[in-house]
Amino acid sequence: MSQESTATPRMTAEDLLGILRTCAGVADDIVLDEKALDTDFGSLGYDSIALLEVTANLERTFHVDLDDDAIKASDTPRDVISMINGR
């Protein structure tokens, strides 16, 4: 196994925004960019199943184990970046 696949990579804001776009799309009236990092997921239009899909993607991409309810609608993208990079 290569060094890259075993090390836990650091997550950037663009990583997370890309995962959100892929896993859950973007609501019609939302601009999903760096300015959205402090808006909670509920206000960004993501429901619990969208966040479950995002959680599963984060686990695979960043080699972490997360509970199904690790990300709540009241959390913000910046909370998730801190959580992943703080582990």
Partner: peptide
Amino acid sequence: LPSRLLPQ
């Protein structure tokens, strides 16, 4: 359709 609906 909006992109929110495509992955699901």
